[in-house]
Design a protein around this nucleic acid. Structure first.
Lengths: 109, 109
DNA sequence: TTTATATATTGCAATATTACGATAAAACTT
DNA sequence: AAGTTTTATCGTAATATTGCAATATATAAA
């Protein structure tokens, strides 16, 4: 019967999957790339940068924020979103392990 | 009107999102962790390691393979799956950029 | 206070993902 | 050849994600 059996996995596994999921959409990759590029971003820019409506962008921002990949401060009549470095580290470490994986595998693949 | 407007984004953005999506499930994180640990893996192990049925695991393996994160060779009556390092590099590079992002952001967040 | 301007939330339709029973396919064993 | 073992695929139900129009909320400007 259906989706979601995530509870059956460890907190670490769920955390890594959640971080990856936050980046698992081209729009959210684009948002983060834009944040990296302008180095300090007000959300309004994005509505002109991306081929998506304002509500949809707002929703993607919310997901990135929930995952801890960006953070946002109220700034006058707009909101300033920035990269939030800290949370992403575990995913980075995990992927590093994958890249360094070159041991006894050679025997079979 | 619904889901999937991915075509509107660049090939690079779609590629990064696809790689992240492949890791965006606890079961697939668990599979990759197991592959890292045993260093050379036959799928059968996983059915005993994970709280999921054989068809479901086979499906997750297929997705990881499609994303180029693992590769598999036929080996007698079973299949040997291993980490496939090469494809993951772009995602690693991207996340590294996020971690190193500490420039003029400080003014607003 | 009224009017802009900007972001968030709600509600809903379209689509994608997840999970598994049943079944198929492939290769080894006897 | 018949049976065993192992992985893949099909079909389908449950659930999650995506996208946007409409609307709400909040601040700045007039």
């Amino acid at each position: 019967m259906g989706a979601s059996k995530s509870e059956a996995f460890s907190a670490e596994q769920q955390n890594l999957a959640a971080l990856a999921k936050a980046l698992a959409h081209p729009a959210r990759i684009a948002i983060v790339q834009h944040l990296l590029q302008v180095d300090s971003c007000i959300c309004g820019d994005l509505v002109h940068e991306l081929p998506l409506s304002q509500p949809t962008i707002s929703q993607h921002l919310k997901e990135l924020k929930l995952a801890g990949i960006i953070k946002g401060n109220i700034e006058g009549s707009s909101i300033c979103y920035c990269i939030h470095t800290n949370q992403i580290a575990p995913l980075h470490t995990f992927i590093s392990q994958l890249l360094n994986c070159t041991a006894t595998n050679s025997t079979c693949c």
